[in-house]
Amino acid sequence: MIKLNHLTHIFYKESTKQEVKALDDVSLEIHEGEHIAVLGHNGCGKSTLAKHLNALLLPTEGTVEVDAVDTASEADLWTIRQTVGMVFQNPDNQLVATTVEEDVAFGPENMGMEPSIIRKRVDEALEAVGMQEYKDKGPHLLSGGQKQRVAIAGIIAMRPKYIVFDEPTAMLDPLGRREVMETMQRLNKEEGITIINITHFMEEAVLADRVIVMEHGRIVLSGTPKEVFTHVDLLKRMQLDVPPVVELAALLHKENKQIAADLMTIEEMVKELCP
C-alpha cells in the first residue's frame, strides 16, 4: 500500500520569485491491485504527486509511505524505486540504450542482478508488452507507441508492485495511445500490478477502478468513474474534456430523469435508450 499523509510540496519558482504550493495537504491510500487514474488540468499538481511516489521528489510537509517505508529514508531509496516503477511522458527521453533489449536490461543491471537472471527478465518483460521481435532494433526505428511499450518493459523487468504512468499517452497518436492503454490494462488484470495513471484524458480514466480529480494541488473529487463523471459541470469548469457520451448522458438526464446519468460508454448508452 502507498500511503500519502497530509502531503504538501512547496517549490520556489525562479521566474516569478515566488513560492508555489504544488501540493496542498493531500492524503490518499493506494491499495495493491488497484487501477487508479489521477485527472487534472495542466499545473494542478498531478505530476508533482506522481514524482513523490518513488522519491524523485520528497515532501515539504507530511509523509509518503511505500509498503510502510518512508520515502524520505535514504537507505531504502533503491528499494522504493524498484517497488514503484515510473513511465514518463516522452518515450524518447527515457530510453537509454542503443537496442531495445539493452534498454530493458538497464534497470536490472542497475540492481546488480546476475546476467542469466537479467536475460530471463528481459525476455519476459518484452513478451509482456509484445515487443520480443524488436529486441535487437534501435529505439529510433520504433513508433511512439512501441517506444512507450519498451519503456514499460524496462520497468516491468524490475518487477515493481506499482507502476506510475505520468501522462504516458500525451505525445502519442491514437494508435499508440491504444497500444499503451491495452498494455496497462493487461498488466493490471493479468499480472496484478497496481497502476497509477496520471492523465488528462477522460477516456483513460473510464478504465480505472478509482478516479481522483485534482485542482490547485488538492484532491477535489474521488470515487469510481461513474461517481466522478456525474459531476459533469464541475469537470467542465476545471477545463477537463468530458467524454461526449458522458456529457450527453448528463444532458439527457437533466431533461428526463428516467435516463441514467452515469453512462460511460456508447454501448451502455444504446442499451439505456433502446432496451
Binding site: 524505486r81 514518463f88 536490472p108 546476467p115 537479467i118
Partner: peptide, 22 residues
C-alpha cells in the same frame, strides 16, 4: 528528463552494476 528517468530506474553510477551481456 533522461536523468530523471534513469534515476527512477535505480541508476546510481557504475558501482555494483552488472551487465546483460558480460
Amino acid at each position: 528528463e533522461l536523468a530523471m528517468a534513469m534515476e527512477a530506474r535505480c541508476y546510481h553510477g557504475g558501482e555494483n552494476r552488472t551487465r546483460l551481456k558480460a
